[in-house]
Simulated assay, not measured.
Amino acid sequence: MANQYIQQFETMGLYFGLAGIFFFIGMAINDVLKKGDVPKFGRYIVWLVLFLGCSGFIAKGLIQAFWQGAGVG
């Protein structure tokens, strides 16, 4: 029973850690875009690529969780 709680704690820690990394990456990109005087269109493209990368990672996690919950994987 305790092993299950430890595993859940590790999983949540991993997800929160990765969310923090994505947050800091976003802050760094925002700083570079401001200091580099990038045009608006370029900023939109950069944020779109960042969003698609994050959403793909989140979708992968959700699909994996649903499959494991259904006993597929």
Rank of each mutant, 00 (worst) to 15 (best):
Glu10Cys: 02
Lys34Pro: 04
Gly61Ser: 02
Gly17Ala: 03
Thr11Glu: 14
Tyr15Trp: 11
Ile25Cys: 14
Leu50Phe: 08
Asp31Ile: 14
Gly36Phe: 02
Ala59Pro: 07
Lys40Gln: 13
Lys34Trp: 00
Ile29Val: 09
Phe23Asp: 05
Ile25Phe: 05
Gln8Leu: 01
Leu33Arg: 08
Phe22Gly: 14
Lys34Phe: 03
Gly36Asp: 03
Trp47Asp: 04
Leu18Val: 11
Gly53Asn: 09
Val38Asp: 01
Lys34Ser: 07
Phe51Thr: 10
Lys35Ile: 06
Gly17His: 05
Phe41Arg: 13
Leu52Tyr: 08
Gly42His: 00
Gly53Ala: 10
Ala28Glu: 11
Leu50Arg: 06
Val46Tyr: 04
Ile21Met: 15
Val32Trp: 09
Phe57Ser: 12
Phe23Gly: 02
Gln7Asn: 07
Leu48Lys: 05
Phe16Ile: 15
Asp37Ile: 12
Phe9Val: 06
Ser55Val: 14
Phe41Gln: 12
Asn30Ala: 15
Arg43Gln: 12
Tyr15Phe: 14
Cys54Gln: 15
Ile25Val: 14
Gly20Val: 01
Tyr44Pro: 07
Lys60Gly: 05
Leu18Lys: 14
Gly26Cys: 03
Phe16Lys: 06
Val32Gln: 12
Glu10Tyr: 07
Leu52Asp: 04
Val49Cys: 02
Met12Tyr: 12
Phe57Glu: 08
Trp47Ala: 04
Lys40Phe: 09
Ala59Asp: 04
Phe24Trp: 00
Gly17Met: 05
Ile25His: 08
Tyr15His: 12
Phe22Gln: 15
